[in-house]
């Protein structure tokens, strides 16, 4: 089992140039921020269930750049249909990493469906993803680093993490600021 903060920091230790990252709301966004803020990070504070689809729209708009969606099991479950939508589009530059502690961590640690029978990599495979796997140790995280620059996706990773609490690490909450900053990193103007 992985410690989430250490796992995300390791995954992004050699962040490829040009990598675009979308983080689902809650602890995955804090994990991404704690690993190092970056103009090409887009943190969600709401829009639960939307992270993977933001990643898809972005991946289709920027087919020459790799896109990583980093989210949690609860957020991924709320947008489960997005896996079917992504499977139909088959964006080679998209990779989704689900930090799976099997619980809704922000709301009192109620068990989520990944504790109750849903196997997200199997769902992704059934939806037509190019690959999907479960990782449980830091060796596997290090191996994933090599896939960030060229995901050969769509790919989905279920990273099994502990459910222990982590210190809060809060990125900016202003969506307009985050979006403008993100677009500027791509050379796009405001508005």
């Amino acid at each position: 089992m992985l410690e989430r903060r250490e796992a995300v920091r390791s995954l992004l230790a050699d962040r490829p140039a040009g990598l675009l990252v979308v983080a689902g709301l809650g602890t995955p966004a804090y994990d991404l921020f704690a690993a190092g803020d970056h103009d090409a990070n887009f943190y969600l504070w709401g829009a639960m269930g939307g992270a993977a689809m933001i990643g898809l729209g972005l991946a289709l708009a920027q087919p020459d750049r790799p896109v990583l969606v980093l989210t949690g099991d609860g957020e991924a479950l709320m947008g489960l249909g997005a896996l079917a939508t992504i499977g139909a589009q088959k964006p080679a530059n998209l990779m989704i990493v689900v930090l799976d502690n099997g619980h809704f961590g922000e709301t009192g640690m109620q068990k989520s469906h990944t504790s109750l029978g849903t196997d997200l990599p199997r769902v992704a495979e059934a939806c037509g993803f190019a690959w999907a796997e479960t990782v449980r140790d830091m060796g596997a995280i290090a191996a994933l680093r090599g896939r960030l620059a060229k995901p050969a996706g769509p790919g989905l990773v279920r990273a099994i993490i502990g459910a222990e609490p982590t210190p809060k690490a809060l990125p900016a909450r202003d969506g307009a600021y985050l979006a403008t900053r993100f677009r500027a990193a791509l050379g796009l103007g405001p508005g």
Binding site: G50, I54, L56, A59
Partner: peptide, 18 residues
């Protein structure tokens, strides 16, 4: 599969300049 996916998809497209 459901319409709210498209709201998020449109925002992703915009973030990427499309």
């Amino acid at each position: 599969t459901t319409e709210e996916e498209g709201v998020a998809g449109c925002v992703g497209a915009w973030l990427g300049g499309a």
